[in-house]
């Protein structure tokens, strides 16, 4: 295709986006749009998959059958979310194998939040409340994103997320209404998860090189800072109901703006974890790669069985 033809197609494409038309997999799209989407949607998929690990840690030790069933169902949902998103990514012409390779080799990123440890049961409450809460804010903003398969996956995911957050908040509520030790556990979990949750929205707008292009393509509908502010505004009153304190001395309601002002995030920590030096990066990748490798004989056996059955069918028919 000549450069002029590409320019022409690009103009048509930009106009479609401007009209809020959805882009579907077989439509022409700029190579950069395709690559950016492969990167972002797969990163999202990897986050759902790796995100099962910190919570999976507590399934066998949940304090009651009710909690165990709920946590198990939540973790299963996260597996489902990963699968919706992987198949949305594959519509862009990349295989599942390549996507897994990128995750396992460390080439692809996943959300840094999952590189923090879950050391007490209260962490399961804090994750549902804060981490799923932050994820919901990100994901609701993506339900109207321009790429059709991504938007459809997001709609499905958002429908399932609200139970995740409610089950987490209920755990926090139970702990906060329990013994002083239980309430202290809840406070400790909030202390450890608050800042990493704020980091989930990514770097400040000023330090986010992709934001402008992503907004133009309607891949992103709100900026990192806007979403982060929304999270703070809705979460602080929820902490008040629990009767625990957000670990930020600078946190204060600003009557003028109608929003909470909050302190500076430790961006060094953020970049350290992104670069692989968080408390659990190594453990998470080992668990993930290990599960994939240990499962390989099962995948091969299933394929061999399928082929054998297919041959039998042909033999019978002839």
């Amino acid at each position: 295709m000549s450069e002029k033809e590409v320019k022409n197609l690009e103009a048509i494409f930009e106009a479609r986006i401007a009209r809020d038309e959805k882009i579907e997999p077989k439509d022409w799209m700029p190579e950069k749009y395709r690559q950016t989407h492969i990167r972002q949607i797969s990163q999202h998929a990897h986050s759902e998959i790796v995100g099962m690990l910190p919570e999976g840690n507590w399934i066998t030790r949940a304090p009651s059958l009710r909690r165990k069933a709920a946590l198990l169902a939540k973790v299963q949902d996260e597996a489902g979310h990963g699968l919706y998103l992987y198949s949305a990514t594959e519509t862009l012409g990349i295989s599942r194998e390549e996507l897994f390779d990128q995750l396992h080799s460390g080439k692809a990123k996943y959300s840094s939040i999952f590189n923090y440890p879950t050391i007490t049961w209260a962490d399961i409450g804090a994750i549902g409340w804060l981490v799923d809460g932050a994820a919901i804010i990100n994901q609701v903003a993506l339900c109207t994103t321009s790429f059709g398969p991504y938007a459809r996956a997001m709609v499905r995911i958002c429908k399932e997320e609200s139970f995740h957050q409610r089950q987490g908040y209920e755990i926090m509520l139970t702990l906060c209404n329990g013994t002083p030790e239980q309430k202290a556990m809840a406070q400790d979990a909030l202390n450890r998860w608050w800042w990493p949750s704020l980091m989930m929205f990514g770097p400040r707008d000023a330090d986010s090189p992709h934001t402008e292009q992503s907004m133009k393509w309607k891949l992103k509908r709100k900026t990192n800072d806007e979403l982060r502010q929304q999270f703070v505004d809705q979460t602080v009153p929820q902490a008040d109901i629990l009767g625990i304190t957000v670990p930020d001395p600078d946190l204060k309601f600003n009557a003028e703006t109608g929003h909470y002002d909050f302190g500076e995030i430790d961006w060094d920590e953020f970049w350290q974890v992104v670069k692989g030096h968080g408390p659990c990066n190594k453990e998470r990748m080992e668990a993930r790669v290990g599960a994939w490798e240990r499962g390989s004989w099962v995948r091969e056996a299933a394929m061999a069985y399928a082929e054998k059955q297919a041959k039998k069918k042909v033999a019978k028919a002839s």
Binding site: G80, A302, Y305
Partner: peptide, 16 residues
């Protein structure tokens, strides 16, 4: 791997 597994996976992934 095969149609039967596809049905079961579809049930677990899309109709929870």
């Amino acid at each position: 791997a095969d149609a039967e597994m596809a049905l079961e996976n579809a049930r677990d992934v899309y109709t929870r």
